[in-house]
Amino acid sequence: MRYLALFILSFVFWMLLTFDLSVANLVAGGAAALVTSLLFTKYFFHKVVKFIQPVRYFWFLVYLVIFTWECIKANFDVAYRVLHPAMPIKPGIVKVKLELKSDFARAMLANSITMTPGTISVDIIDDVLYVHWIYVSSEDPEIYSRKIAGKFEKYIKKIFE
């Protein structure tokens, strides 16, 4: 099942990327998707049933809207700090406790954090995510955990777990 799911996913991706319905292209795409699914299935989701649960797609769309908004805010934030003559930065690395358990959800959260205002995820050790923050605005772990990860964590939980 997992092999099939990854095969279909990579095949659809190939078709969108090449955008060509000729037989030669279909065969080439099939071969590429086959190699991909054979090599990388061990890194794929463990429960592919999740792919056919519509409610997850709904939450994914909600997440996408929120994420895009945060992303745009992030850009104005960084642009402001860069263009301001005095450069109002106060960088540091802070710890954020993770509530998500599965690897894929964690990777997704780390990616989202990297794209949002002034933060880059550095490393995950055990259950703690280390985040480089361009403006450390509070000393309290509770407050900054919520500020950095809280917005996304609940949606990612609904999508992937």
């Binding site: 930065i89 106060k90 960088p91 540091g92 690395i93 802070v94 710890k95 550095v122 490393d123 050790i125 703690v128 280390y130 450390v136």
Partner: peptide
Amino acid sequence: MGDKSVKDDYKDA
């Protein structure tokens, strides 16, 4: 990290 840095939790880890 630069001079302006205020915090480094990663060092201990």
